[in-house]
Amino acid sequence: METKKKVVIPRPKPLTSENDPLHIIKTRMVTHNRPATIAGPMVRYSKLPFRQICRDYNADIVYSPMILAREFVRNEHARQADFSRNSSDTPLIVQVGVNNVTDLLKFCEMVAPYCDGIGINCGCPIKEQIREGIGCALIYNPDLLSSMVRTVKEKYKDTLRLETKIRIHDDLDTTVELCRRVCDAGADWITIHGRTRRTRSSQPVNLDAIKYIISKIKDKNIPVVANGDCFQLSDVTRIADYTGANAVMAVRGLLENPALFSGYGRCPWGCIERFWYRTIEYTCLPFQLTQHHLFCMLENMQLSKSLLKELMSTKSLPEMLDWFEDNFELKRYGEKGFGERVEIPYIKIE
């Protein structure tokens, strides 16, 4: 009878100044005269092709989508569907939705060789996740959250960075106490989304809350990332200056305009061409997800509603590519000017 060989997962390589997210967060103001810029996690949307175009446009650190630990560690199909990367996909933080130490350790063992840090999701407000003890549920369970952070850091130390992304409580001092406990447990930095579990994204982010929390944990000497309502490059400096944060994370703003951190007020056409190239090259996005990414970017570019409707009526990747080539001049990778144009290059019909 043949015995199966045990698969040995390599330990993560030591972090360097080039790929250590903690070093980048701490030093960007000195090296680049600006706060660190971070492309935050979006369920489904923060996959490899999209992460790469965010990097093309000055995102210093990029997150994966939230991945559910219990599915990932038990299901090979989930691993194939949820996580892909390449050698240039760094610094990368893999965000995890998890509600117990055991699954978190198994998850870290699987992904640590392929990323630079793990982010524990403590901010997802979706009711189904909260019922499972995931996402926002963790800000009401500081004992469990602290235990998860401490266990991972004791095992990996500085070979793997660990972050927690939280929402705020109605009582801000409760959030302060949570952050202090997470700091003591060994987290490398904390990301604060300035909304409560019940605050709608249409309501303004509470920058005063982020500022207050940062002021109360300064003695812990841990970096803080501010998250919420970053839609223009000017917002990065404004948010960081007001709150005292070391870095600023954008999420919805990047979905519409991946070039946000490069100072483009609207999504440039170059994003479209780069996204098409990466999507076809990596072949890791479902058609509907690809379609929605392109819709968000083109809507931000103020494409007409009639053309947006035509885009969304396409039923396959080849059909959608044909539609693009019928309406626009779409350069291929390697062609002169690829990924450089700003305005939409409509094809003029005589």
Score class of each variant (00 low, 15 high):
residue 202 S to E: 11
residue 24 I to V: 10
residue 335 E to N: 05
residue 123 G to N: 04
residue 78 A to W: 03
residue 314 T to I: 08
residue 169 H to F: 08
residue 300 N to W: 13
residue 322 D to G: 09
residue 11 R to E: 13
residue 126 I to E: 11
residue 308 L to P: 03
residue 16 T to L: 01
residue 188 D to M: 01
residue 308 L to W: 07
residue 189 W to T: 03
residue 58 N to P: 04
residue 223 P to A: 08
residue 207 L to Y: 11
residue 347 I to E: 11
residue 211 K to V: 04
residue 323 W to P: 02
residue 187 A to L: 06
residue 13 K to S: 14
residue 291 Q to C: 02
residue 305 K to L: 14
residue 59 A to Q: 00
residue 50 F to D: 01
residue 233 L to P: 00
residue 348 K to C: 11
residue 123 G to M: 08
residue 247 A to N: 02
residue 66 M to F: 15
residue 242 Y to C: 02
residue 5 K to I: 11
residue 176 V to A: 00
residue 12 P to T: 04
residue 343 E to H: 15
residue 87 S to W: 09
residue 100 N to W: 07
residue 85 R to P: 00
residue 242 Y to M: 05
residue 293 H to R: 03
residue 136 C to F: 12
residue 160 L to M: 13
residue 346 Y to C: 05
residue 130 I to N: 08
residue 196 T to A: 01
residue 18 E to N: 14
residue 72 F to E: 08
residue 241 D to E: 15
residue 98 V to N: 06
residue 187 A to R: 05
residue 146 S to Q: 06
residue 107 F to M: 10
residue 300 N to V: 10
residue 215 S to W: 06
residue 143 D to Y: 14
residue 143 D to S: 12
residue 51 R to T: 06
residue 265 G to M: 11
residue 24 I to C: 08
residue 328 F to S: 05
residue 179 C to N: 05
residue 47 K to M: 15
residue 208 D to W: 07
residue 172 L to R: 08
residue 204 P to D: 10
residue 264 Y to I: 02
residue 206 N to W: 04
residue 249 M to Y: 01
residue 104 L to R: 03
residue 336 K to Y: 10
residue 4 K to M: 14
residue 30 V to R: 13
residue 145 L to H: 04
residue 101 V to M: 11
residue 40 G to W: 01
residue 278 R to M: 09
residue 184 D to W: 07
residue 7 V to W: 04
residue 230 C to H: 06
residue 141 N to G: 06
residue 89 D to P: 03
residue 20 D to R: 03
residue 14 P to A: 10
residue 346 Y to E: 08
residue 118 I to R: 04
residue 167 R to A: 00
residue 349 I to D: 14
residue 20 D to H: 06
residue 34 R to F: 10
residue 226 A to E: 01
residue 306 S to Q: 15
residue 339 G to V: 01
residue 140 Y to T: 14
residue 213 I to Y: 07
residue 153 K to L: 02
residue 216 K to D: 03
residue 99 N to Y: 12
residue 314 T to V: 13
residue 167 R to H: 06
residue 34 R to K: 12
residue 205 V to I: 12
residue 84 S to N: 15
residue 223 P to T: 10
residue 90 T to L: 05
residue 89 D to V: 02
residue 180 R to C: 09
residue 198 R to H: 15
residue 136 C to M: 15
residue 268 P to R: 08
residue 231 F to L: 13
residue 263 G to C: 04
residue 216 K to W: 02
